[in-house]
């Protein structure tokens, strides 16, 4: 029973990179599952069972994190000391101030039963979805850049993009909730 690493990258035997080959990750996940899954330890000693349980819990948590590019980036940022996560997403990114102000007005109107705000909201939704796509494309570029240069400044950049993305995502969710909720 060799102790397993609690570091997600190390557990998978991967370099600490932001761009990962997902089919390769899945292959590693299946193979490691075959090795550590509690089903393989059912008739073993209590210690070995606990070992399998703990190792597989890390493995599953790791796979969940690494296969999702955003969670993966958050994880790598945290590893590198950029640990502000949620906090950053509560502040409105300055470049979005005006849009968010208008959006909130429209949301208020719709909530107040004024259906004429609907087209404006549809418009806003499209705009924010497009914005999110742009952010995702920026992120991919930065991922490649970081993997190449291993530059902390790139990580700082990614930190900012992730915060902006979370903020935009919340906006999209909120608008969609209002639009479908009001229609129902």
């Amino acid at each position: 029973m060799n102790p397993v690493s609690s570091n997600y990258y190390d557990f998978f035997g991967l370099e600490h990179k932001l761009d990962l080959d997902l089919p390769d990750l899945e292959k590693r996940f299946y193979s490691l599952s075959r090795q550590y899954h509690p089903d393989r330890y059912t008739l073993k000693s209590r210690e070995e069972q606990q070992y399998a349980l703990d190792a597989t819990a890390i493995l599953n948590d790791a796979y969940r994190t690494l296969r999702d590019p955003l969670a993966r980036a958050e994880y790598l940022l945290k590893e590198n000391g950029f640990d502000i996560g949620e906090q950053g997403s509560k502040n409105v990114p300055p470049e979005l101030l005006e849009e968010v102000f208008e959006l909130n007005m429209a949301l208020e109107e719709l909530r107040g039963g004024d259906d004429s705000a609907r087209p404006a909201l549809e418009e806003a939704r499209k705009k924010f979805v497009a914005m999110r796509e742009q952010i995702d494309s920026d992120l991919r570029g930065q991922f490649t850049e970081y993997d190449r240069a291993r530059d902390r400044n790139v990580l700082a950049e990614i930190r900012g993009i992730l915060n902006r993305r979370r903020y935009v995502r919340n906006l999209v969710n909120e608008v969609e909730k209002e639009l479908t909720g009001a229609a129902a």
Partner: peptide
């Protein structure tokens, strides 16, 4: 829908 065992 998290694969189990899972922990937090």
């Amino acid at each position: 829908n998290s694969t189990i065992p899972a922990s937090a």
